[in-house]
């Protein structure tokens, strides 16, 4: 129970920071997404089942503030988190280099995915910003991964989901 509450609380906190603090730190039109980096890091240290739940939950939160179409972030976050969980299974999660690099790659892939879905529903966006966004996420991931890894080592975070 404590574990679910912790993850939900962190997600909402990061969402609020994403909508308020991060745009003020804009560089070259791009700003990082804390909630997405958190979802990726969390998925890397946890099982694919957790990854699906976290991906859908964070995506739903992001979608509330995205645009009228609901589900874009839910879909892309879920897929990215599942891939992250698969990567997490085949590497040593104690070392933070590979998780950080893979979160950079996955942000790029998510950017492309969102770009193409938006294109299909006739919302045109700028493609360049995806790259800057990815680089910025990489910087965030350096700190975020250490934080998430330490968090997942705590005793109350290790219990299984009970539903």
């Amino acid at each position: 129970m404590k574990r679910i509450l912790t993850v939900v609380f962190l997600c909402i906190l990061f969402l609020i920071l994403d909508n308020t603090l991060m745009p003020l730190l804009k560089i070259n039109g791009a700003y990082p997404s804390l909630i997405f980096t958190f979802a990726l890091c969390y998925s890397i240290v946890n099982s694919p089942k957790d990854a699906v739940i976290v991906g859908v939950f964070t995506g739903a939160l992001q979608d509330v503030y995205f645009l009228n179409g609901f589900g874009i972030n839910m879909l892309s976050n879920m897929l990215m988190c599942v891939i992250a969980a698969k990567i997490g299974k085949s590497i040593f999660t104690e070392k933070s280099f590979l998780p950080i690099v893979s979160s950079f790659v996955l942000s790029l892939v998510k950017g492309l995915l969102v770009f193409s879905i938006l294109f299909l529903i006739k919302q045109y966006t700028n493609m360049e910003v995806i790259l800057y966004h990815g680089i910025y996420n990489l910087v965030v991931a350096i700190f975020m991964y250490r934080f998430t890894y330490k968090l997942s080592q705590k005793a109350y975070m290790k219990k299984e989901w009970r539903f």
Binding site: P48, K49, V56, L75
Partner: peptide, 25 residues
């Protein structure tokens, strides 16, 4: 897990298509 992911993906895609043109959230 794979089945769940596929079902969810299809659901989300149809949700996107449905919700783009609505008037109110």
């Amino acid at each position: 897990l794979a089945v769940v992911i596929i079902i969810l993906s299809v659901t989300f895609l149809s949700l996107i298509g449905y919700s783009v043109n609505r008037e109110k959230m």
